[in-house]
Every structure is written in structure tokens, then in C-alpha cells.
Nucleic acid binder design. Structure first.
Length: 565
DNA sequence: CTTGTCTGCCC
DNA sequence: ATTCTGC
DNA sequence: GCAGAATGGGCAGACAAG
């Protein structure tokens, strides 16, 4: 397939909003792909050159791509930046400034090779080499083709489809409708590589491609996630009999173990990245399990060496490293709370019920101190969920996960099988109170929000006569509220930061505004911040509502914020 | 060698 | 992570 | 309700620049 053909398909996709229609178009792409080309096309459509679980990344984003665009177009960085703030998409910026070069009919395979080379460059001088390669590539493409290539480099085609839609499309390409999407999804779940799946289906047909697939050691599988419901009552209504488990504030880890073989343990993150190197303590896994092979689902949490208590999330995350792991493991050892088993001794367990898997799990782990099978309580009443939730909160945990006891292990967060509960019913965030913060400035938006002229904004709190920065806010507003806010802020635009602002150079907004507007902000936690001038910041900040009724003098103070810790 | 910027990935 | 929105 | 796309803080690592 030619790149020009691909870009015509992408043009069509860009014009359609209906995902059903998108699936049809994508099915055409799959049908038209030549042998050996299908996998490559799928990766490109996902804004990548390799499957999710391969650690191959482009290593360029906004800043570097913009530099390459400066070179390829001759337009200054300032001019491109200005366009970017208006259009909210570097692909569109390129389309606007690119000279109508190209003309060469490039093959998709060639494009793929070029992009792979960009990803492969590393070491001293690699940034320069990446820039050259991008510049060269753009020079061979039309402005429209370049638009899509830039979006691929940024990992966002922004066309309204992703892997799920590609699976629907694959089903359509094979049988004319979404009839086999379930089976394909299952195959994708245990090997989340859309390029591999499409290629295989095209080569051997969907029946053989889906035949006998199951969890495989050494291949990360997609994990089950917890949805959210507002009340315990809704949980009981949707799920019936449930198990309530503690929710630990650490990092999700999928553990693959085999007693014999060229490796013993491999671990993966929630997003399927391999992170075996981060957890040297798991080399001893064979001592504490009664099995020849396992795939486990767990939460890794650091412990305080003095008190034995679990450490805060930020401390646990210091283990997300490649270097000096052993040293860090001494400072912050890990424990692993195991809550599920997806495979044991050659048998895939994801089709078994929660209760069955739990029984197998309990038997598979021997009594020990660091690989802990977490507790679960079977419950049928809403009040019991609420009570257990409060119990975990009192213990200092994040909350609870409520699980439907007869449910299979299904990836993603759909279907009301697992539901999380963090804050108490009726409250907006886990933080006991909301904060009334002052809007200090705002930033242009990307994608849809470019049209609003605002995508997020900077807020602060009072410290004496000063206003110190606390967090940026980019969620909690409806489209309508974004438009309203932009209108209101336009009347407060200032040419520079107000004298009362204590600012940090990395947080300079696109537009400063006078300190007039107050907003109510919710969050889950107050964190010690290395970046914000308040010295603290918010974890998961979101807007609750505009507080036009409040003056800046009535906004929350830094002392009040610190008392909430 | 240190510092700053950018990126990717945890939540 | 949270939240909003078109289908 | 699903799937997708906006957006958050903050950590380590890779490079480039000084």
C-alpha cells in the first residue's frame, strides 16, 4: 500500500464520527493490506511501530517534533508555537506551513522502516540524528501525508478509534460484521499485539488464529480494571454477591513465574511494560509458592524499614528504575499483595470464576512475609461494603475494591465486575475538604479544546498578601463550562504575572490573568511538591464548580491547605 | 562533572 | 489517575 | 455503557549544554 492511499483512508476516518462507520473503513484497510504489510499498518494506526509491550518508543514529542518542523519548513519556532496554540495539533500546524513538496509515491513499508529507524536511534548525538531523519521523511511526503506522520510520531492519530475498534474492523473484514469480535478480543487479551493478530488472521483465517489461545508464560496479558460507582447500593444492585478487598496505593504488577526454563520470573506493569529489573526480591518467588508455573496479579507496595508500615505512593514509585535498584531495594523494600491468579501449571484460569481463582490462589502461596495473599470478605449488603470501606480508610489504605464473585477475569473496566471505592459516598474526592483556589492564568488546549482557546488553567492559594501556585486543572469542566470560563478570563487578561504571584518558570501559562476568579477544587491527596511554589500540590485535582460568589480574599490559604494533610 | 530539558510511564 | 461526550 | 480523548502530579532516565 502506498502512503498516499493510507492517508486517503485516514482522511475518510477524520471525516466520520460514527465508530461503526470507522470500523467499516478500517476493515477496508485490513482487506486491502498486502501480505506482510498488515501488522505494520496496524502499528502505524496505533501511533507506534511495535506492540504496546515492546519498549520501543520514538523518544520524541512536542518539542523535538517542533524542532524538526522548523528545519523542514524554514518557519521559526515562535511562529510554529503560535500556530500550535491556535490549532492544538502539530499535524495541523504542519499542514498549514508545509510547502507542497512530496510527489514521490512512498510505500507504507518504507515509511515504517523510516519511523523504526527514528525509534532505534539512541546514545550521544541521537537527538540530532532523529531530527535529521524526521526532516528527511517530511521532505518526501505531501503536506497531508506529513500531517499524519507527525501524529504517528506523537503517538496520537486523534481520529476517534483505538485497538478495540481495530478488532471490530478485523471481525468485519473476515465475516462482514462484528460477529467474531468476542473471539478476537479474547485472543487479543492474552496476546495484546494487534499487528500480530491481524497478520495471523489474514494468513491462517480467524478460526485457526483463535483456536486454543490462552494465557502464556512470558507474554503479558491485559489486566482487569475496576470501574466506579457512586454508592455501595448501586454495587449490590449491579453485582449481587460480592467480595470486598482492600485497595493498596502502590503499583500494579503482573508476575509470571516458571520453576524451570531459561527465566524464572518476569513482571509487567498495568500497561504491559516489562519491569522485571525493578523487583529483585521476586527472584526468591520459587521459595514461597507451591506451583511449577504461575501468572499472578498483585499490587507492589514499599514498606518502611523501621516501622514496617506501607509507604506513600511517591515513595513506592522510586523503585520504578533501572539503575541502583539493589540500593533502593535496601532503602524501600517491597511487599506484594497478590489478589488474583490467571494461570497455574499449564492451565489458563481466566475463564474460571473469581471464587475458584481465589481458592487456587490461596493454595498456591505458602505462608510467608512478603508475598501476601490479601484478605477478602464475602458480602451481600450495601452497609457491609460501606463499613469495610471505612475500616480500610481508617487503616490508612486507599479504599476497597468490590468484586462480583462469579465473574471471569475480563480485561478492562467494563461490565461491572470489579468496582473501586475510594472517597466516602457523597464526597467529590478523597480529600476531606475542597479547596477554593484563585485562577492565575491559562493554557491553550489540544484537539477539541483548541477550539475553546483554553485546555487547562493554573490555580493558586493565598499566602499572606501573595498567591502561590498549587496545581493546574484540566478536568471536571464540561465543554460549555470551558467556553464560559474562557469568556470570563478574557476580561481579566494581564500582560504579565500579577505582583502578588509567586511563580515557577516551568509553569508559566500562555496567558496570565488578574487574580479575580475563584474555583472550588477537589482532589484525593495533598502531596509535597518540588515544582509548585506552594510547596505542596494536589493528587488528581479536578474542578467542582465556579465560585463567583467568593472573592480572592475568601480563597483558601496555604496554612489551611497544609492542615488538610 | 553538574544542571536543565524533555520524554515516558506510574498513579 | 478523573472527567466529559458522541454513539 | 462503551470507547475515546481531553486533562492532572511526579518519578527516573536519556541527552544536551555548560
Amino acid at each position: 500500500m502506498k502512503v498516499s492511499t493510507l492517508s486517503e483512508y485516514l482522511d475518510r476516518l477524520e471525516r466520520t464520527q460514527s465508530r461503526n462507520e470507522m470500523s467499516q473503513i478500517l476493515a477496508e484497510v485490513i482487506r486491502e493490506a498486502e501480505k506482510g504489510e498488515a501488522s505494520v499498518l496496524m502499528y502505524l494506526l496505533m501511533g507506534r511501530v511495535r506492540p504496546l509491550f515492546d519498549p520501543v518508543e520514538f523518544g520524541v514529542a512536542d518539542k523535538q517534533v517542533m524542532k524538526a518542523m522548523v528545519r523542514a519548513s524554514g518557519v521559526t519556532e515562535e511562529a510554529l508555537g503560535a500556530q500550535y496554540r491556535v490549532l492544538g495539533d502539530l499535524g495541523l500546524v504542519w499542514f498549514a506551513v508545509a510547502k507542497s513538496a512530496g510527489g514521490e509515491k512512498m510505500e507504507v513499508i518504507f515509511l515504517y522502516e523510516s519511523l523504526s529507524q527514528i525509534a532505534a536511534e539512541s546514545g550521544g548525538g541521537s537527538q540530532e540524528r532523529k531530527l535529521m531523519l524526521i526532516e528527511e521523511l517530511l521532505g518526501k511526503l505531501t503536506a497531508n501525508e506529513g500531517k499524519y506522520v507527525i501524529r504517528i510520531l506523537l503517538g496520537k492519530l486523534r481520529l476517534g478509534f483505538s485497538d478495540k475498534t481495530l478488532i471490530d474492523a478485523l471481525s468485519i473484514s473476515e465475516v462482514g460484521d462484528k460477529g467474531i469480535a468476542d473471539k478476537l478480543e479474547y485472543a487479543y487479551q492474552v496476546r495484546p499485539d494487534i499487528g500480530f493478530l491481524v497478520q495471523k488472521v489474514k494468513e491462517v483465517g480467524w478460526k485457526r488464529a483463535c483456536e486454543g489461545v490462552g494465557v502464556a508464560l512470558g507474554t503479558p496479558m491485559m489486566v482487569m480494571l475496576a470501574a466506579r460507582l457512586k454508592t455501595a447500593g448501586e454495587m449490590v444492585k449491579k453485582m449481587g454477591s460480592v467480595a470486598v478487598e482492600p485497595k493498596f496505593d502502590g503499583t500494579r504488577i503482573q508476575i509470571h513465574f516458571q520453576r524451570r526454563g531459561d527465566w524464572k520470573v518476569k513482571t509487567y506493569t498495568r500497561n504491559l511494560e516489562e519491569n522485571t529489573y525493578s523487583f529483585p526480591e521476586l527472584t526468591k518467588l520459587g521459595d514461597v509458592v507451591d506451583a511449577d508455573s504461575l501468572v499472578l496479579d498483585a499490587e507492589a507496595v514499599g514498606v518502611d524499614t523501621k516501622t514496617g508500615k506501607l509507604v506513600p505512593f511517591q515513595m513506592t514509585m522510586t523503585r520504578k528504575r533501572k539503575h541502583d535498584v539493589a540500593e533502593q531495594a535496601g532503602k524501600v523494600p517491597m511487599v506484594f499483595y497478590v489478589f488474583d491468579v490467571m494461570y497455574k501449571d499449564g492451565v489458563s484460569l481466566i475463564d474460571k470464576s473469581y471464587e475458584e481463582r481465589r481458592k487456587i490462589l490461596t493454595k498456591a502461596v505458602k505462608k510467608n512475609d512478603w508475598l501476601r495473599v490479601d484478605e477478602y470478605k464475602l458480602v451481600t449488603k450495601a452497609e457491609e461494603i460501606t463499613k469495610l470501606h471505612q475500616l480500610q480508610i481508617d487503616k490508612g489504605l486507599e479504599g476497597v475494591i468490590v468484586k462480583k464473585i462469579d465473574s471471569q477475569y475480563v480485561p478492562g473496566r467494563t461490565g461491572w465486575r470489579w468496582v473501586k471505592m475510594k472517597e466516602a459516598e457523597g464526597s467529590t474526592g478523597k480529600l476531606s475538604d475542597t479547596i477554593d483556589a484563585v485562577i492565575m492564568g491559562f493554557y491553550s488546549g489540544k484537539g477539541k479544546r483548541a477550539g475553546f482557546g483554553i485546555g487547562k488553567f493554573l490555580v493558586g492559594v493565598r499566602r499572606g498578601e501573595q498567591i502561590v501556585t498549587l496545581t493546574k486543572i484540566g478536568t471536571g469542566l464540561s465543554d460549555e463550562q470551558f467556553k464560559q470560563l474562557k469568556n470570563a478570563l478574557d476580561k481579566l487578561v494581564a500582560t504579565k504575572a500579577d505582583e502578588s504571584y509567586v511563580i515557577d518558570k516551568t509553569l508559566v501559562p500562555d496567558v496570565w490573568v488578574e487574580p479575580k476568579l475563584v474555583v472550588e477544587v477537589a482532589a484525593d491527596e495533598i502531596t509535597i511538591s518540588p515544582t509548585y511554589s506552594a510547596g505542596v500540590s494536589l493528587r488528581f485535582p479536578r474542578l467542582v464548580k465556579f465560585r463567583d460568589d467568593k472573592s480572592v480574599q475568601q480563597a483558601t490559604t496555604i496554612d489551611e491547605v497544609k492542615q488538610m494533610i
